[in-house]
C-alpha cells in the first residue's frame, strides 16, 4: 500500500466536501493510504502569489517541509495546490540561492526545505501507482459510454516546464483515465482553454464570459457532463451556470462532475454515499445514463 500526505488545501474541505468524499473513497478502495497533514496552511495559490511571490514560495515550502518531516510524498486533489506546491518544490530544488533565501525565512519557524519529497496530483497516482490496468480491473460499474467533456484545467498542465505532468498541447492522461472507467472523452472546441475562474471577484463579467464559452462549447459538442479536477474550475462552471442564466438568459443545465466522483461511481460507490447535493447543476441525468 502506497502512503501519501494528503494536502487538502482550503477550498475542497471547506466548500466542496463532495470532492473530498469521493476522492477519499476511491483512493482508499484502490489501496492508496492517505495521511492527513497536521498544521498545513494555504498552499499559496495565484491570489497570494499576486500579492507576494516570495511569501507564496515560503508558504509552499513550509507545507512541503511538513511532508518531508513525515517522510511522505504529497498527494493533492486540488489542481491549484498541485501547481503552487510543484512549482515551489521544483524551483527550490533547482535554484540554490533562492532556496537559501527561503530557508532563511523558514528558520524562523524551525523548518528547512531539503528537497527530498515529491508533490503528486492524484491523477499521477492513479496512472503510476495504481496503473490503468489495475484501475480497469477495479471498475465494477463502467460508466456506459457517458459522453464526458474532459476539462483538465490550466494548472494541471501549465507551466509545463515545471509541472511536467502531461504534454501541455496534447494531454492524454485525463482522457485515458476517463476512458478507463468506461466513459467516452469527447472532443470539443477550445478544450484546453481556461475557465476564467481566477478573475472571479475582480472582473466577474469577464470571468463569466469565459466560463460561458467553455460550457457552450461542451454543450455544442453534445457532452453529457463536464468533468473537472480543480475546485475553482468546478465552482466557476457549476455556480457559473446560475449566473449565466441571470446575465445571458441562457440555460445549459450542464452537469459539472469532479473526476473523483465519476471514479467512485465506477468503483461501485452508491450515488447516495456521495455528497451529490453539493452540485448546483443537478447530476440526475448523468446517473440515469450510467444506470
Amino acid at each position: 500500500m502506497t502512503g501519501y500526505a494528503l494536502f487538502l488545501g482550503c477550498t475542497i474541505p471547506a466548500r466542496q466536501p463532495h470532492y473530498e468524499l469521493a476522492a477519499r473513497k476511491a483512493l482508499t478502495k484502490l489501496g492508496i493510504e492517505l495521511v492527513d497533514m497536521e498544521g498545513a496552511t494555504c498552499c499559496a495559490p495565484p491570489p497570494i502569489q499576486s500579492i507576494d511571490l516570495e511569501t507564496s514560495l515560503a508558504l509552499a515550502a513550509y507545507n512541503i517541509c511538513l511532508a518531508e518531516e513525515a517522510d511522505l510524498n504529497i498527494l493533492t486533489l486540488c489542481t491549484g495546490c498541485f501547481e503552487s506546491l510543484t512549482i515551489a518544490n521544483r524551483i527550490l530544488k533547482g535554484k540554490r540561492e533562492l532556496r537559501e533565501k527561503i530557508n532563511k525565512i523558514l528558520s524562523n519557524v524551525g523548518k528547512e526545505f531539503k528537497g527530498t519529497k515529491e508533490v503528486r496530483h492524484y491523477l499521477q497516482v492513479l496512472m503510476d501507482d495504481v496503473g490503468v490496468n489495475r484501475l480497469k480491473q477495479n471498475v465494477v460499474k463502467p460508466l456506459n459510454g457517458l459522453k464526458v467533456a474532459a476539462f483538465p484545467g490550466c494548472h494541471l498542465l501549465r507551466p509545463s516546464e515545471l509541472l511536467r505532468l502531461d504534454d501541455p498541447e496534447r494531454p492524454r492522461i485525463f482522457d485515458m483515465l476517463i476512458e478507463t472507467v468506461g466513459a467516452k472523452s469527447i472532443p470539443y472546441k477550445n478544450k484546453l482553454r481556461c475557465c476564467g475562474g481566477l478573475l472571479r471577484g475582480y472582473a466577474d463579467d469577464v470571468a463569466l464570459a469565459i466560463a460561458r464559452d467553455k460550457i457552450a462549447n461542451a454543450y455544442n459538442a453534445g457532452a453529457d457532463c463536464i468533468s473537472t479536477l480543480c475546485p475553482f474550475c468546478f465552482l466557476t462552471l457549476d455556480l457559473g451556470q446560475m449566473l449565466i442564466k441571470t446575465a445571458y438568459k441562457e440555460e445549459y443545465n450542464m452537469p459539472i462532475i469532479h473526476y473523483a466522483e465519476l471514479l467512485s461511481l465506477s468503483l461501485g460507490v452508491a450515488p447516495k454515499e456521495l455528497a451529490l447535493d453539493f452540485h448546483k447543476m443537478k447530476v440526475d441525468k448523468v446517473l440515469e445514463k450510467i444506470g
Binding site: R158, S160, R193, C194
Partner: peptide
Amino acid sequence: ASCYNCQE
C-alpha cells in the same frame, strides 16, 4: 487569469 497559455 494565470492560465499560463502565453508563457507556454
